[in-house]
């Protein structure tokens, strides 16, 4: 059994663990955001290309 960490040391440990997990997140986030931005642009372009006004409005209104 290793030595039990003091409360302060354990908080430091939490920070280290979270920072390590954060590093991975920092690698993934730009990709996620890029994809989200692309999806948003695609959705907006698709909505804009609906020529029937009522159909466009019903698609825009869905979920709002």
């Amino acid at each position: 059994m290793g030595k039990r960490l003091s409360d302060e040391d354990y908080r430091q440990r939490i920070l280290e663990v979270v920072a390590r997990a954060d590093l991975r997140l920092d690698r993934v986030l730009p990709e996620l955001r890029k994809e989200a931005a692309e999806n948003l642009a695609l959705r907006e372009a698709r909505l804009a290309s609906i020529t029937d006004e009522k159909l466009r409005k019903s698609a825009e209104a869905w979920g709002k």
């Binding site: 959705r43 698709r46 909505l47 290309s49 609906i50 020529t51 029937d52 159909l55 466009r56 019903s58 698609a59 869905w62 979920g63």
Partner: peptide
């Protein structure tokens, strides 16, 4: 109309 309906359905 059919094109618009396809896009609107897909959007939803």
């Amino acid at each position: 109309i059919v094109t618009s309906a396809r896009l609107a359905s897909g959007h939803i």
